[in-house]
Computed example of a mutant assay.
Amino acid sequence: MSYSSFSSAIRVLSGLLLALGVAHAALADGDKRMLPLLPKYQQECAACHVAYPPGMLPAASWQRVMANLPKHYGTDASLDEATVKEIGTWLNTNAGTYKRVREDPPQVRITRSAWFVRKHDEVSAVTWKLPAVRSASNCAACHTTADMGNFSERNLRIPK
Rank of each mutant, 00 (worst) to 15 (best):
A67T: 03
M148V: 02
W90K: 02
N68P: 10
S137Q: 12
G149N: 04
V65A: 09
F6T: 05
F151D: 02
H120D: 03
H24F: 06
A46C: 14
P53T: 01
P159N: 01
R33K: 04
A9I: 02
T111Q: 15
H49M: 14
S137H: 08
R154A: 11
S8M: 10
V84H: 08
A146M: 06
D121G: 08
V65P: 08
L35A: 00
P54K: 00
L91A: 02
P36T: 03
V12R: 12
A95W: 00
G96S: 00
N150R: 03
S61N: 01
P70V: 01
M66A: 01
T111E: 15
V108P: 07
Q63C: 11
P106T: 11
P54G: 00
R112A: 13
P70N: 01
V117E: 06
V108N: 15
V65G: 04
G15W: 02
A19L: 14
P58Q: 03
S124F: 08
P106V: 09
A82H: 14
I10W: 09
S61V: 08
G21I: 00
M56P: 02
C142Q: 01
H49Q: 15
P105F: 11
P36Q: 00
Q43K: 09
C142N: 04
V22W: 10
T145E: 15
A95C: 03
A26G: 13
K32W: 05
M1P: 14
A9N: 10
G88P: 08
A51D: 09
L16V: 13
P54D: 00
T93Y: 10
V123S: 11
M148K: 15
D121W: 11
E122R: 10
